[in-house]
């Protein structure tokens, strides 16, 4: 009681107009709210205890599942691309390996002369056609460049 008087006197000194206000609240609650609330809490606790206690990953999962899913997707995508690229090398490698025993077989079992006889159209040494073309195109380009940029008279003098 003394405490209440003390608080009221304190308010009288501090805020005389406020101290005249009734300490009523403008808020209301639904009918029988406080009668039913304890039951609501009991039910919630009973439900909480019926459900097995959440494990750490169950708590962690919803929060970070999007991040984890994104990381998995990235790893799978990168892995797929990596395998795709290296896979083409493997195919070539496999072909080489597979063809190697055949080549050995040919070398071991078929006579060289027979081979030459059965493939007369093959030249003894096959030069790379691409290389020639490349060189020739380079040469052509160099010639064109010289013709265009260097005066004919200068060329004659130099020669």
């Amino acid at each position: 009681m003394d405490q209440n008087n003390h608080i009221n006197n304190e308010l009288d000194d501090l805020a005389p107009n406020l101290s005249k206000f009734k300490k009523d609240m403008p808020y209301t609650v639904p009918d029988a709210y406080f009668d039913t609330f304890p039951m609501k809490i009991r039910e919630r606790i009973a439900h909480m205890e019926a459900v097995p206690e959440s494990r750490w990953y169950a708590l962690w999962l919803p929060k970070y599942s999007y991040v984890a899913a994104s990381i998995c997707f990235l790893i799978i995508t990168i892995g797929f691309l990596f395998l795709k690229n290296s896979g083409s090398h493997n195919i070539t490698g496999t072909l080489v390996v597979k063809s190697a025993p055949n080549a050995d077989y040919v070398i071991e079992h078929i006579d060289e002369e027979l081979l030459i006889e059965t493939s007369p159209s093959l030249p003894a040494k096959t030069p790379s056609k691409n290389k020639i073309n490349l060189n020739s195109s380079k040469k052509t380009y160099a010639e064109e460049y010289l013709v265009e940029t260097i005066d004919e008279s200068t060329l004659t003098e130099e020669l």
């Binding site: 406020l18 206000f21 009734k22 009523d24 609240m25 403008p26 808020y27 209301t28 609650v29 639904p30």
Partner: peptide, 11 residues
């Protein structure tokens, strides 16, 4: 769930 006189609301 809010009802009260004007003074209470203003407070």
């Amino acid at each position: 769930q809010i009802s009260g006189n004007d003074l209470l609301l203003r407070l």
